[in-house]
Structure formats: structure tokens, C-alpha cells
């Protein structure tokens, strides 16, 4: 009884220290969360402000015009936007299936002794600096593309209607296709790491029951593992896409850095990040600099839209899953 009393008095005594400590902790947490928002908002406003002279001068035409002429002070963002989106799209088209395969192999198929070394090797890929990818791309991958891959693609896909124009052009080895593929290699570790981690989280009981019902390995993956992890897999894909959109150094090396609009994927182009990295130091007029900052704002918005779309899709999925249950 007395023991209980003591305990009670201790409990009663605790709040005396509690409220202040609690409030301080709460304030710190709120401060930390708000500072991120403030930084994000501040960065958005600062970039928009820096780009405002370009938006004012060119109006909406800034987004639709192909020109990029520093001599005549005529700037349009369409080519860098197009180059950014096309290379990121090629990267995702190649990286998502490969990452999916790697993650499935590591969680479902590979013998246990092989899983750790392959997993570690893929994680090491993520640690390679992007400039190394760029140099490898320029000196090894681009000549390989020019000599072996691109002529073959032209012969194979060039005659096709509509699609053919994408693969018709001089095999330079430097252009949107090469840049997209390098980006793909660069984002594979990120996407596959997320996929592998979430595939592992599928409860063993679910797996075993599916196998027990006579499911093949393919059915297990397609009907059990993927539905269970769908939202997290999409999250990984969007993480990779975000990285592909903003990647600068490797792209600068192999994209060709030309403000030309071409449908052919073999032709050089430029991306938003590459244009800024290339041209900022010598952008000697205010309008030129403002146009580059405005490009940065466009990239900011594109990344924001991609992430928002990702979140929206995840929310939808969660909803439909909820209604199913």
C-alpha cells in the first residue's frame, strides 16, 4: 500500500518537470519541421524572383520557344525542358524493369549465399560519383553506342512508321539515348534498393500460403508480392525519377549540350541542369542570367509536379486498397 502511494506521488511529481520539457521538445520538433518548409518556400521564392526578369520579358513564350541565342538575348526553355523529360523517360523505361528484376532475383530467386554480395555490389553502384559515370559514358559507352548499338537500332526500328523517326539519325554516340541510358544505370541502385527492401517485408506466411495453394513463382510475385508492396515500389520509382530529372554532371558529358530540337533520340540536346551548369559562369547579361535561373525554377516545378503526382497515385492506391478490404 505504501509502495503504491510512493509510486503515485512519483507519478504526480513527474508532470511538474514535464510541461516545460514537453513544450520545449514540441517546439523544437515543430521548429525542425517548419524550417524545412521555410527553406523549401524560401528557395522557391528566391529562384522565382531571380527568374522573374526572364518571365516578364518573354511571358509565357519562354516555355514554348526553341530559341536560345545569347547574342540577341532571345531565350526559350522548350529545348532544355524537352531534353530533361526525354532523357528522364528513357532512364525510367530502362531502369524500372531492370531494378524490378534485380529486386526479385535478390529476394525470391537467388540462393542465400549470393544475395549479400550482389546486394552490396548494387549499393556500391549508388556510391559512384556522377562525374565518373559521365567520363565512362563519354569514353567507353558513347563509342560503343555509336559503333554497335545505334546503327543496329536504325536498321531495325528506323523503317517503322511514327516510331522510326526516333531512331533515325547519324550514330554520334552522344545524344539523348546515350544520356538516358546512363541516367538509367545511375538510378537503378536507388530503385532496386527500395524495391528489395519492401519485397523483403512481405510476410513469410503470405508467401508460404500462396506457394501452398500451388502458385508458381511468377504468380507469387505478380499476385502477392507486388500488390502487397505496390505503393512502396511506386515510391522508389519516383525517387529514381526525381534523381534522373536533376542529374547534371553525367548528362553534360554525353548529352551533347546543343540547344537544338530533334525528334531523333540519337541527336544531341540539352537538359535544364546541364544548361545551367554549362552556361552560368559566363552568363554576362542580366537577362541571360535571369533566363538560366528561370530554367532552374522550371526544373523545381517539374520535380514538384512529379513528386506530387507520385503522392497522389500513392494516395489513390491506398484508398482503393482500403475499399477492397
Amino acid at each position: 500500500m505504501s509502495g503504491l502511494l510512493v509510486a503515485r506521488s512519483e507519478i504526480a511529481a513527474r508532470p511538474a518537470v514535464g510541461p516545460f520539457g514537453d513544450r520545449l521538445f514540441r517546439a523544437l520538433l515543430i521548429g525542425a519541421a517548419l524550417s524545412v518548409l521555410a527553406l523549401l518556400g524560401g528557395a522557391a521564392i528566391a529562384i522565382f524572383w531571380g527568374g522573374l526578369p526572364a518571365f516578364r520579358h518573354f511571358g509565357l513564350g519562354f516555355f514554348t520557344r526553341l530559341a536560345w541565342d545569347p547574342v540577341r538575348q532571345d531565350f526559350g526553355a522548350l529545348v532544355p525542358i524537352y531534353g530533361t523529360l526525354v532523357t528522364a523517360a528513357i532512364a525510367m523505361i530502362t531502369a524500372v524493369p531492370v531494378s524490378f528484376g534485380i529486386a526479385l532475383f535478390l529476394t525470391e530467386v537467388a540462393p542465400h549465399w549470393l544475395r549479400a554480395p550482389i546486394g552490396a555490389a548494387i549499393e556500391l553502384l549508388a556510391g559512384i560519383p556522377s562525374i565518373i559515370y559521365g567520363m565512362w559514358g563519354l569514353f567507353v559507352f558513347a563509342p560503343f553506342m555509336a559503333d554497335h548499338v545505334e546503327p543496329g537500332l536504325t536498321a531495325l526500328l528506323g523503317p517503322l512508321p511514327l516510331l522510326g523517326v526516333l531512331f533515325d539519325g547519324p550514330p554520334l554516340g552522344i545524344g539523348m539515348l546515350t544520356a538516358g541510358l546512363i541516367l538509367g544505370i545511375m538510378v537503378v541502385p536507388f530503385i532496386s534498393a527500395v524495391m528489395r527492401d519492401v519485397f523483403r517485408l512481405v510476410p513469410q506466411a503470405l508467401r508460404e500460403s500462396a506457394l501452398g495453394l500451388g502458385a508458381t513463382r511468377w504468380e507469387l510475385v505478380w499476385r502477392v508480392v507486388l500488390p502487397y508492396t505496390r505503393s512502396a515500389v511506386l515510391g522508389g520509382v519516383f525517387l529514381g525519377l526525381g534523381r534522373a530529372l536533376g542529374e547534371t554532371m553525367a548528362v553534360t558529358f554525353v548529352l551533347g549540350n546543343a540547344h537544338d530540337f530533334n525528334l531523333s533520340l540519337f541527336m544531341p540536346s540539352t537538359s535544364i541542369a546541364a544548361a545551367i551548369a554549362n552556361e552560368f559562369t559566363e552568363a554576362d547579361s542580366d537577362l541571360y542570367r535571369a533566363s538560366l535561373v528561370a530554367l532552374g525554377f522550371v526544373l523545381f516545378v517539374i520535380t514538384f509536379i512529379v513528386l506530387a503526382l507520385g503522392k497522389l497515385m500513392l494516395a489513390r492506391l491506398a484508398q482503393s486498397e482500403g475499399s477492397r478490404r
Partner: peptide, 27 residues
């Protein structure tokens, strides 16, 4: 016209002298 950067009617752009040298040797 002329300037430290211009609107090129043709070609690919290499970053720095070393970038241009690498492109010439590759293509």
C-alpha cells in the same frame, strides 16, 4: 554574330577545351 556564347546553327557542345577535344576524338 559574336559573343562568348552564341546560338549555334549546328553541332554538339563540349564543356571546356577538354570536352571539345574528347568529342572530336570520339566522333
Amino acid at each position: 554574330g559574336e559573343g562568348t556564347s552564341v546560338s549555334w546553327p549546328a553541332g554538339v557542345g563540349g564543356k571546356g577545351n577538354e570536352g571539345v577535344a574528347a568529342y572530336i576524338q570520339r566522333i
